[in-house]
Amino acid sequence: MAWFKKNKQPKAPITGEDRTVIPEGLWVKCDSCKEIIYRKEVLARANVCPKCNYHFRISARERLAALFDNGIYEELDLGIVATDPLRFTDTKPYKDRLKQYREKTGMEDAVINAAGRMGGSPVVISAMEYAFMGGSMGSVVGEKIALNVERALERRHPLIVISASGGARMQEGVLSLMQMAKISSLLGKLDDASIPYLSILTDPTTGGVTASFAMLGDLNIAEPRALIGFAGPRVIEQTIRQKLPEGFQRSEFLLEHGMVDLIFERKEMREKLITCLRLLMDPVPAEPALPAGS
């Protein structure tokens, strides 16, 4: 007789993309130091672990709310969606994947375009959403960032792009690849027009996103300990058949090698960005207030 028969299956470990989402509840476990920490304390510190300063992955909306004055911004370029141009199917049709991520995140694709003010001056921001298919860049991400670069050009407002992406979206094949050229070419125009572009690199920023707009900022600014690179660590390990050194491809490594200008802690990000922008560009004369809402 099994007196202690288990009725419940053991809980499956949380894996993959859901891993870093802060679970509901009073306590959370830090992904980095594994300490159990009080959730409110993490939230009070802008989703940063009080023990080890690990910056939890946060959503594009949370980032936008944290950067704009009073958290107020106008969301732009809504209603632009993917078309599945290759009719791509791997283990699951791309169409189904898109649907699933739309439901899960409430977003149309992996980037939000916004305009608002920072320190009273107008600025346009594109923020990538890692929770939407790993922040992968397909035609929609490419198109929306392109639209925001054009907006920055037209209005002569500074541009900020917050990257969080595994790279190009394989399901749109070479069309995804071309988004790199499309955005970089527009950034050339922004550069010619002397309009500041700040690239914010968050955990993780890899592949085609790094190899295009994320590395082209007048200033490249990283969050602490974010994974930033061209090839992913696994690909490199498989290629060279060696273990990678500790801290490889983290923000601090890139700073040391001269690839990023600065590392800003999340809690100081907004104020320091405002300062950077002031140093780069004279304030734009005040315009009629932007419509409120987010």
Partner: peptide, 14 residues
């Protein structure tokens, strides 16, 4: 990676 593979590609595109 140390010498900026991503940066080198990005700059060429621009």
């Amino acid at each position: 990676e140390e010498r900026g593979q991503a940066e080198a590609i990005a700059v060429n595109l621009r």
